[in-house]
């Protein structure tokens, strides 16, 4: 990325004696137009690789959704459509300000260009803040990936898992164990540390009765129904309709939105770099290649989110 831009200045250090008057023209190009076209073609090739990079995840999504449509229509309800929708709008607006920044560079209004870039950066920050709230909320509700998500669906299974022989549970054991126990519960003191380390054991801390309505029905008469050890509203653990392997939805959700988030971070770094250069007066209508290419990158980030939003949030 940056190398594409940086290469335009290869001559500054090394080949300053070639007699070019345009300080932005590298020695191996004949004209600024040729250099601009090369940069642009290179950027489009890079964008194509980005499409294919995400493309792999789109394929994964299609296969999983094809094989398990029930998981997607069920688990999609746990995503907050309002937050997702607001995020989409934020990203679209930041894309718009980015396009305007390029336009202002072209018509030689560097001050307006910088203002638009700052607005774009604010949009990116806003996007990530909303994303942060979404993520923390889900993690709090154990709506996470893989076997960490897994909840037993019957008493027998819960007991079997409680034996600590579940070989698949590996992720963040301490965090899971801590969350399953109500801090206000005085019995917390009684749980040995060794159990806290084992996620499988921590599942057994929940009485089977709370696992599912079916679990209550299967309970022996006379046993007291214990209150859930936590209270976070309509929790998925209590839902009998939850299809098996619902964790797959959240696995692919975190993969795709996470990778997208990483791209947002890279884009933000790029925009900061453009703002700094813009403030130093590096850009004008004669030379604005980095703004243009950075803009293209930012639009592809937007473009991918345009697909992610309906794919995860808007499943009927």
């Amino acid at each position: 990325m940056t190398e594409i831009h940086a290469s335009n200045h290869a001559h500054d250090e090394e080949h300053g004696d070639h007699g070019h008057h345009d300080p932005h023209l590298a020695h191996h190009f004949e004209t600024p137009a040729q250099q601009f076209d090369s940069g642009k073609l290179g950027m489009w090739l890079f964008l194509a690789t980005e499409v294919l990079f995400f493309g792999g995840l789109f394929v994964l999504y299609c296969i999983l959704r094809y094989n398990h449509p029930e998981i997607f229509s069920y688990a999609s309800n746990y995503l907050d459509t309002v937050m997702g929708g607001v995020n989409t709008c934020v990203l679209i607006l930041s894309s718009l300000t980015m396009a305007l920044a390029v336009r202002f560079a072209q018509i030689n209004k560097p001050k307006w260009m910088v203002i638009c870039l700052v607005l774009t950066l604010l949009g990116a920050v806003g996007f990530l803040v909303i994303k942060y709230f979404e993520y923390t909320h889900k993690i709090h509700d154990h709506l996470v990936w893989g076997s960490t998500f897994y909840v037993p669906t019957s008493v027998e299974e819960a007991e079997k898992l409680g034996g600590g022989e579940n070989p698949v549970v590996t992720t963040e054991p301490a965090a899971v164990a801590a969350d399953f126990v109500d801090p206000s519960d005085s019995e917390q003191e009684l749980i040995p540390d060794s159990l806290m380390q084992k996620p499988a054991t921590s599942v057994s801390q929940i009485k089977p009765a709370q696992m599912a309505p079916g679990g209550i029905a299967s309970m022996a008469e006379g046993e007291p129904v214990v209150e859930p050890p936590y209270s976070s509203g309509a929790n998925h653990l209590e839902d009998a309709d939850m299809p098996p392997n619902t964790h797959l939805f959240f696995g692919i959700y975190y993969c795709m939105t996470g990778l997208h988030g990483v791209h947002v971070l890279i884009g933000m770094a790029l925009i900061v770099w453009l703002i700094v250069r813009g403030l130093r007066g590096h850009f004008s209508h004669k030379y604005y290649t980095p703004v243009d290419l950075g803009g293209l990158y930012w639009h592809i980030v937007d473009l991918i989110w345009i697909f992610l939003f309906p794919m995860f949030y808007l499943i009927h």
């Binding site: 076209d37 642009k40 073609l41 489009w44 090739l45 964008l47 194509a48 690789t49 499409v51 294919l52 493309g55 789109f58 394929v59 894309s95 718009l96 980015m98 396009a99 803009g295 293209l296 639009h299 592809i300 937007d302 473009l303 345009i306």
Partner: peptide, 26 residues
């Protein structure tokens, strides 16, 4: 977004071609 924000409407056709090729591969 591709046509107007990313200027493909006014850009060289090869850029669009390659971009479409990448989508076609997916």
């Amino acid at each position: 977004v591709a046509l107007f924000f990313m200027h493909l409407r006014w850009d060289r056709p090869f850029n669009s071609l390659f971009f479409v090729a990448s989508i076609a591969a997916v």
